[in-house]
Amino acid sequence: MYGKGLLKGLGVTLKRFADTYLDDIKWMGKRYYTAEGLAHRSSKDAKGIFTVQYPEEKLPVPEEFRYVPFLVYDEGEDGEILNRCTACGICSKVCPPQCIWIERALDPKTQRPIQEPSQFIIDVDICMNCGLCAEFCPFDSIKMDHDYEIASYGRTVHHLDDLLKPASYYDEIRPVNSTREAAARKEAEEAKAAKKAAREAKAAARAAAKTD
């Protein structure tokens, strides 16, 4: 029969239309603006309208989500900023569009380069959010941010001040990664300490052997 296909298709549309209202009733007003409602609307069982009412409700971003890079700093005891970055330059070398500019700081007395950046510039309007810098940073310093609400009325270039964010923020947005990295750091430190201890013990033994 001509038109059967059309009717079948319209049936699908009608079902989808009805689904929204049925789901609304089933959730009794909790379908919107609740975390469970949002999770339901993004799950395999989602039916009907599944609009996220941004900005009132926001989709939770997964841990691995990456936007623009930022620099992690540890907080010292009196709140001072201990930048993890050593200005080694690996991130700027690995960056595919070359959007990271780093200047190594100089020791004010000796004028020799030290392990700290005096300038760190990321041209966000070149950055391709690929995350390679964060992947290859050996000091867990440069990381990818979750904050995507950074639209502005001008071009975006991030300098050192804009980039620095505390380690607590990083722990909060990427708990799994930061725990793993902290454990790895601790392990490396312990290994280093053990190595040092072993070396010292060896030296002591040798010294003891000599005196014998």
Binding site: Y54, P55, K58, Y148, E149, I150, A151, S152, R155, T156
Partner: peptide
């Protein structure tokens, strides 16, 4: 240009954020 939205690509939510910025303007 009135509003710049960084990101490569900006996620839909980031885009809406930019459009809200435009409305504010």
């Amino acid at each position: 240009v009135d509003v710049y939205i960084p990101g490569c690509p900006p996620t839909p939510q980031a885009l809406i954020n930019g459009l809200i910025k435009l409305q504010e303007k």
